[in-house]
Design a protein around this nucleic acid. Structure first.
Lengths: 344, 344
DNA sequence: ATCGGTAACGTAATCGATTTCGGAACGCCA
DNA sequence: TGGCGTTCCGAAATCGATTACGTTACCGAT
């Protein structure tokens, strides 16, 4: 069964396509009698407007592109979910691409998305990305771009990020508030700004509580895996004066650390309190349940979508697009792994 | 900067759009001199073909729709990742939608996808879905549909699924091979066929090894959460003759069971061996590391994509579309939680 | 001088829907 | 009867690219 067109309906009724089009869109200058018959035959022929024809006229696709480094990642799943919910409510669809943390691929997919004809782009930069010329090129063709999570100060665009600094600060403050004074940190690699901010938040919290920064209490990941968490946790324990608490840059590292500590005979949190970052769903399933800093992935997706939709609207109305910078707080989820046993 | 059209180039050079179009597509009946200048000015004006115009002519969008019940789920992330990889390699894009396990929403999003103009659909049915008329309607308009993971025998379409029966059978056989004879199962709710197959695989393995089916060793989940895993595991332990091993319908249930058992003073796997289903990434991070049956999510996405692309191609060539039914094996990942300590 | 051939390009239809500009038909009033 | 205003609809342009089908001009051959 081939799909019916306006012409098909017009031929059946002996009118022109213009009349049919206007009847279907309920124009006032079409008699209600004609409207009736048009609607009836449209129904009968299972008419549906041809998407591309409409979009060619309207110059609006109602589709936005989404680029994330890695689809298979709980955080990005959350973000995407937030994006989809907002976009679908307004009749927009999303085209999903992943950069695999590759700068080359990021350039490729953004260009492909532009060529596909999206109305805007939601991008989380890859870790490799240094130049943002490929995104600037999109903007020059009036294609709005909103960055989220991993952003670049070089691009004049709206952005939505987690307050990693504050999240880390709060996590460490939570440990400090309980009276811990020797707090270690397993930090991420230097490059992604996000994990650097967590390290800075860690330092700032120590400073705010008048505690010295002890380099021997800081380890730096390369792979950010649970193996590294295990290695560094045990290394900390071997220090002459081992730390009492650990703030890990990610949940995988935190879980690796906890697992290794328990296997080595230490108790969590009695011998070492641990708190992670990201709040994976398994955190609450473990024993002890793992404290973590939860990133508002879903909200990041929502807010980024709203900003993009606003810019798309402004562009359609020939207004200069406004750019906003949204920073969402991360919230500490206190569970057993970081709760200091009441002395007694 | 407005995007250049063929007409812009044509006006600059004093030729017609036809010439420009043919020059850009390297037609033989255009002089190389003209081609040179056309290419040069196309470059200069940053010409890029208008996607909708091309698609309207060609009647092919190079976009497929993907519908999953829930984006925020490791398994579906894997599937989506596989889909994206295959599709992008062939210049296709994917439009992502989620049904939130709602029949109503599944109908809505599939219709929206059709209206948006996709070349085909990859669908995982929601748990609620009973009738598949909405998908049949798509097929009648020559829109190929491929089902994956949760499928329906009522729809004549290609499908790709995990062999849940075999995965469950192998998991239980792995326990039986080690000499366990009292094996419990925490099964899923009756409806999704997938978890029912796991239950059947459990039963079949017992039968194959000549062991009786003991109803007191089977519990049925409603929410399929770690809390239920905890509850049922402890209930099993309270039996006069507790089971020695447990096959859980999901990893969340398995992890909940392990956590509860350990907290209650039992040892895993010494007092109770446990194996889950899905092979979440955390399984290998825990202590003991959790055995599980890994579903080939990425491959399911790949295979489903290939089938869909084949049907799209066949449809373009006016051939009758062939339907295939692909069943991919699940593989048992043996880790500590299900390894019987060597007696001695 | 006429014919056939070919290189190189133009004309116009086409994809399907939307929209501006008219235009016929009718009624109403002077 | 002439003029004006509605009502309802048709003609045609438009969105941008593609392509079947001419058409021109120039060549060599007869």
């Amino acid at each position: 069964m081939k799909r019916a067109t306006l012409r098909d309906i017009a031929q059946v009724l002996g009118v022109t396509v213009a009349t049919v089009s206007r009847a279907l869109k309920n124009y006032p200058d079409i008699s209600s009698a004609t409207k009736q018959t048009v609607l009836a035959t449209a129904e009968r022929l299972h008419y549906a407007p041809h998407p591309m024809a409409v979009k060619l006229r309207q110059q609006a696709y109602k589709v936005v592109g989404v680029v994330v480094p890695d689809i298979v990642h709980p955080f990005f799943s959350d973000v995407i979910s937030g994006i989809v919910d907002v976009m679908e409510a307004l009749g927009y669809h999303i085209i999903l691409s992943q950069s695999n943390e590759s700068y080359e691929k990021e350039i490729r997919v953004t260009q492909m998305l532009q060529a596909t004809g999206v109305d805007g782009l939601l991008v989380c930069l890859s870790n490799e990305t240094v130049s943002i010329d490929h995104l600037r090129a999109l903007q020059e063709y009036d294609l709005p771009v909103v960055l989220f999570d991993k952003i670049s100060p070089l691009l004049d665009a709206s952005s939505v990020v987690t307050n990693d600094f504050q999240g880390a600060y709060d996590a460490v403050a939570h440990l400090l508030d309980q009276g811990y004074t020797r707090i270690a940190h397993i930090k991420g690699p230097p490059h992604p700004e996000n994990t650097r901010q967590r390290f800075l938040g860690y330092q700032a919290a120590l400073a705010a509580y008048g505690l010295p920064f002890r380099p021997e209490y800081v380890a730096e990941c390369h792979t950010v895996t649970h193996e590294e968490g295990a290695t560094f946790a045990l290394r900390f324990m071997a220090l002459p004066e081992p730390p009492q608490a650990l703030f890990a840059v990610s949940d995988s590292v935190a879980i690796g650390a906890i697992t290794a500590l328990k296997e080595a005979g230490w108790r969590v949190p009695q011998d070492m309190a641990v708190i992670g970052f990201s709040d994976w769903s398994v955190c609450r399933m473990l024993e002890p349940s793992v404290s973590s800093v939860s990133q508002p992935g879903y909200d990041i997706g929502r807010r980024a979508s709203e900003l993009l939709l606003r810019e798309i609207r402004q562009l359609r109305e020939e207004l200069p697009p406004e750019h906003s910078r949204v920073v969402l707080d991360a919230t500490v989820q206190v569970r057993q792994s970081s709760l200091r046993p009441t002395a007694g």
